[in-house]
Computed example of a mutant assay.
Amino acid sequence: MLLGRSIRKWWQALPPDKQELLKDNVKRHKWRILFGICSLSCLIAVYFWTHLDKNPITGRTRLLMFSKRQFLQLAEFEYQSVLESYKDKILPANDPMYKTTQFIFSQLVEKNKDIPGVSETKWSINVVEDPEINAFVMPNGQVFVLTGLFKAVADTDQLACILGHEMAHCLLGHGAEHASIIQLLDFVSLVFLTLIWAVFPRDGLAALGQWIQNKLIEYMFDRPYSRKLEIEADEVGLRLAAKACIDVRASSVYWQQLELMKIVSGTFQIPEWFSTHPSNDHRVEHLEKLIPEAIKLREECSCPSLPSVDPRLIFKLSMQEILKLSRKKEEAICSDSEAKHLSQCFEPSPVMIERIPIVVPVQTLQSTQSTHK
């Protein structure tokens, strides 16, 4: 910005005759200038080409501008920062939620040792007392699960699918890949930013141009790329869960539960285009296409037969029941309201729920699963 603004100010301060002289020089040496720009572009292209890497799990070619050692050093700094923010909230190893997480993650690691990076990574579990529905795995193998997630899942199968997804992010090196893409976008952004502040006649217009450029890069490149990485983690995570003998049918149910929570609680629905993550509906649709293949992989790993009760059917029945009860409650509220409040009946009031109830209790499902085993 300072460089571009300085060039503009310098140009505007030149007398008209000197401006014309410079223009003539540029026209006279335009091929030399073009050759210099092309040479520089080739050098930059060679630099990025030499930093392309093939993902050992998916075989997809990606840009990696950090070595594994460099990125692990950066991840260690971030880990210390996260640990500091959660230092008074981490649950002890004897806590039931910690034990559940440890057991599930151990199964994922044990059954997927043939996957590159699983055995080499030093995994460590951290369960944090926090109402947020979230879990993440850092590049150095530190697993963080927030207790709010336990209230959002219906059973351990859903929890295992989520942990498989987060584990996939780590194994696929998505952190280093996304950081590399951000660095590339920043480089391109700086080039255009210099031109914007040099060419635009006033600071106000240049600032507007800079804002437009940032938004275009964010919504046309950065966020779509993040969504692409999330979808890839869904695919690999589902395979990890299948090999660990998890009921992979529960993976799509979890995202349907989150979507229903948003609808019933009246939460604003952010369009997928504005988000770094795919929409819940998009994820459900994608996972449903992957589940048959995951079930086949599960059978190839000599896993016990799946329970006869499909969790997707259970959720469908539960959703119908919840929406029916919600409509009855709205009708009762409207009928008991005074005349001056009748206008509010046309706008459903949000119904706050902490968790989506399941028609068939979890204990029943567990006993059914035990019977099949």
Rank of each mutant, 00 (worst) to 15 (best):
L72E: 14
S275M: 07
P92G: 02
N134V: 00
P350T: 06
Q70T: 02
F221Q: 07
L195S: 08
K111E: 06
E321C: 09
I333V: 12
C334E: 05
L287F: 05
K111P: 08
F103H: 15
L195G: 12
K23Q: 14
F48P: 04
S326E: 14
E230W: 00
L74S: 07
L22C: 04
L146G: 02
C38G: 13
E110S: 13
K23E: 12
A294K: 01
M97N: 11
S265V: 05
H341E: 15
K243M: 04
I7F: 09
G266V: 02
I333Y: 11
F35S: 11
Q366T: 09
L184M: 10
R249W: 03
G148R: 00
D222G: 08
T147C: 01
H282I: 09
V26S: 11
M65D: 07
L63H: 06
F315M: 11
K111T: 04
F136Y: 10
E110Y: 06
H29C: 03
W11V: 03
A294I: 00
R298N: 01
L238A: 01
F274D: 01
V236H: 01
Y219A: 07
E177M: 06
K54G: 11
L149W: 07
G237L: 00
L171V: 02
L208W: 14
W10F: 13
D155K: 00
G175D: 08
A168F: 03
A154K: 05
S6P: 03
K122R: 15
L83Q: 10
Q12S: 11
L63F: 04
Q344F: 15
Q142K: 12
D281H: 14
L40K: 10
F346C: 05
C345A: 07
Q369E: 13
K340G: 12
N94M: 05
Q210M: 10
R249S: 02
D234K: 04
Q213P: 04
K23M: 10
A332D: 15
E129Y: 09
C38M: 14
D53V: 10
I162V: 10
H372Y: 12
A244M: 01
I104F: 04
I295P: 03
S119K: 15
R227E: 02
L205E: 14
P271R: 12
M97A: 13
M220I: 07
E300Y: 06
Q366F: 12
Y254G: 05
I90C: 07
F66E: 09
E272N: 03
G117D: 05
V360F: 15
L22K: 08
W211Q: 15
L238K: 03
R223V: 03
L287M: 04
P96N: 03
L208R: 06
S67D: 08
I133T: 09
Q80V: 06
Q19R: 06
I322D: 04
S305M: 10
M97Y: 15
H165M: 01
I37N: 03
K289F: 04
T267C: 01
F274P: 00
P116F: 05
V26G: 07
K328Q: 13
D310C: 11
C334F: 05
P15D: 08
K9E: 13
